[in-house]
Write a protein that binds this DNA or RNA. Structure first.
Lengths: 198, 198
DNA sequence: ATGTCAAAACTGAACGTTACGTTTCGGTAG
DNA sequence: CTACCGAAACGTAACGTTCAGTTTTGACAT
């Protein structure tokens, strides 16, 4: 029903997403309006609303296309420790880049008061990544390479703290933090040997 | 400097915070407006803006008075494992209660696009709690009761995942989840013995 | 203690502004 | 000719401020 073949997407999808992304970099997420996106993209407002029901929906696609898909997937080189480290470092890089940070924080903030948007965010961005990640973690656990616990919990021990820093505490998510986090969850001693006797 | 003795606060602070809290429960955070708060509290709009610069600022005080202070402090009974469990269970209870959830999620969402509000949130709510918690964790580590790692990281391993569930994944934060989380961070085996073989 | 008074702060209404989401109109391309 | 699209205009809603007119407050005089 929704649409299958002959449906043509918005003619200037790229221009619109680029305009939104640029405006967010220039003004910050909150100050971007649908009107401004339309003007910048040389598109009529009705066209914009035809394909995206809200500003949040536009930025959902911006984030999906330009941010998440290239950057946030648990790799699989066979060495789980290395892969987890690379994965969490990916979050760190994303959460540190000012532009990506603006986009993510603004979008997540909007999703907190827009259930529609939150649902789309989970379905279109989160869920597709989740399945693969958890399978990979469970396999490594079965091979005895990771601590035995609910794979979901293990995943959240790794990505929860960076998200917490991004959305709650505002502390920076550095590469060093990412590495310390992975080491802690893998049960390794702190890299600098501090408190080794505990 | 700000004011010392004869400064009188808003005459009907209680009525205003109560009105905001009630409206949030009835309509959801996003649908609450400053106008509606003023009407409900039988207060003029100028008075409202006189004491709170924005809707977010009002809800910051709501959350601080009614939610956070009574519920989110790491207790100190001498048994650190028990205390951590009670602490994280407190988060679970808060994140599960629909009213508290509305308030917290709405406020945090607004803080993502309002730097002023985010700063107040950290200063007035987060920072006061943080210091005590970290001291308590560090002391327990010194006594060998907790794994040796940066106390900040240990704290974030415990509260990061619940916040992640609240603000990102939307998964429920149950008491069982809280307990499993504490057990995992303390290095205990899963309570139900599942996956015990690794 | 009680009555009086000026200053402060309040309520309620109205205002201009801004962005929303929709509708209408005129031009263009197939 | 027809269908679509950009531009402009529209009504709605909430913003944050301004303006009377009224009530509360604390000080002082009786």
């Amino acid at each position: 029903m929704t649409d299958s073949k002959t449906r043509r997407g918005p003619r200037s999808r790229e221009a619109i997403l680029q305009a939104a992304s640029d405006l967010c970099g220039e003004l910050g997420y909150a100050a971007v309006t649908m009107e401004a996106i339309a003007v910048r993209a040389r598109v009529g407002k009705p066209t914009l609303y035809r394909w995206w029901p809200s500003k949040g929906a536009v930025f959902l696609d911006v984030v999906r296309d330009k941010i998440v898909e290239p950057a946030i997937e648990l790799p699989d080189t066979g060495d789980i420790a290395r892969d987890l480290r690379a994965w969490i470092r990916g979050f760190a890089g994303l959460f540190t880049d000012p532009h990506a940070r603006q986009l993510l924080v603004g979008l997540l903030g909007a999703a907190q008061t827009d259930a529609e948007l939150a649902a789309m965010l989970r379905e279109k961005v989160q869920r597709p990544l989740q399945a693969g990640n958890r399978r990979r973690i469970a396999a490594a656990q079965a091979a005895g390479e990771l601590p035995a616990m609910d794979p979901v919990l293990l995943e959240e021990l790794l990505i929860g703290p960076p998200w917490y820093r991004l959305l709650v505490s505002g502390e920076p998510v550095t590469v060093e933090y990412a590495d310390a986090l992975v080491d802690a969850v893998l049960g390794r001693p702190p890299a600098d040997g501090r408190l080794a006797g505990g």
